[in-house]
């Protein structure tokens, strides 16, 4: 069971990493992912604890209600991302990163002080749609597979190619007639939706939700997933998210040294692989070696 619940957390890590990866795919360093993750979590926590009609007949929380939460959380996050995206995405590079950190911080302070969010204690006693971690693992990995599929499709799609063009040279891309503002906004909105959907599942999985789930620390952790795994193709962030989430738990047998080892891995990763663990070149080479008899 503990392995299954670790699988769930690894899935969350990979999903959040993909949410950071998408804006990065068109050259936008956005750290807003934890903000949307928290929005998704609060939507789930509030709907499931404050709206009795959703809890069904008492025997477990119905899956249809979970689906409803997902359906509500996605447009809420998309709407916030749409409204904020336009002005925020005018900024570039480090200024965009700072603006998105500010967004995360504003959301955190709001959640701490608004009456309905339960303040610093947050919302607890969130009902369970699944009997054990197995159900969560299935739901998380199905969502992860869907998002991976979307990212894989992007490489062949017009939108994906436009994103790659903007990443390489935005000015040149605009000269070619690519509506760069729209493309960046689309990536930002998709990223927000992924984070919010992850938040919905995470709120149920954790049994409790509070403002601490998305803060500056979470921004840095999710960025580390991408830096560690690589930001050139989608397999990188997925691997980064899975490995960095799992490592502190897998190192438990080491005892007191485990966080030191974990820190070493995070430090050595970018030093030895500055582009991240997975790059298209390394993948191609791997395939060649595999194909050779």
């Amino acid at each position: 069971m503990s392995d299954l619940s670790l699988l769930v957390q690894m899935g969350f890590g990979a999903l959040l990493a993909l949410s950071v990866y998408l804006p990065l795919r068109c050259g936008q360093l956005s750290l807003a992912t934890p903000g949307f993750y928290v929005i998704g979590g609060y939507v789930a926590a509030l709907l499931s604890t404050r709206w009795p009609a959703l809890s069904g007949d008492g025997a477990g929380y119905p899956l249809t209600s979970l689906a409803l939460e997902l359906v509500v959380a996605a447009p809420v996050a998309a709407a916030v991302a749409l409204v904020l995206g336009r002005p925020v995405l005018q900024l570039r590079g480090i200024y965009l990163a700072i603006a998105t950190i500010a967004l995360v911080e504003i959301l955190r302070v709001l959640n701490l002080n608004l009456a309905w969010s339960g303040g610093a204690v947050g919302i607890f006693g969130i009902p369970q749609p699944f009997a054990g971690p197995g159900g969560y693992a299935l739901a998380t990995w199905v969502l992860l597979a869907l998002v991976c599929w979307l990212c894989a499709r992007l490489e062949a799609m017009r939108l994906g190619r436009a994103m790659a063009a903007i990443r390489d040279d935005e000015l040149a891309a605009r000269c070619m007639g690519i509506p760069s503002a729209d493309v960046k906004l689309t990536a930002f909105v998709i990223s927000a939706v992924i984070a919010a959907l992850t938040g919905v599942l995470a709120a149920h999985f954790l049994n409790t939700w509070n403002a601490r789930q998305g803060g500056f620390d979470a921004s840095i952790t999710t960025l580390a997933f991408v830096v560690f795994g690589g930001s050139r193709i989608w397999l990188g962030p997925v691997l980064g998210g899975l490995v960095i989430t799992a490592l502190p738990e897998l190192l438990r047998p080491v005892g007191d040294l485990r966080l030191i080892l974990f820190g070493l891995v995070i430090l050595l990763g970018p030093i030895l692989f500055p582009q991240g663990l997975i790059t298209p070149e390394r993948l191609a080479r791997l395939q060649q070696t595999l194909r050779r008899p």
């Binding site: 299954l4 693992a137 998380t140 990995w141 199905v142 992860l144 597979a145 869907l146 599929w149």
Partner: peptide, 16 residues
């Protein structure tokens, strides 16, 4: 790549 994604999902379902 999308085949890899499908395989990932299938592996998780099997584990569960």
């Amino acid at each position: 790549r999308s085949r890899i994604a499908v395989a990932l999902g299938a592996a998780a379902a099997l584990a569960a």
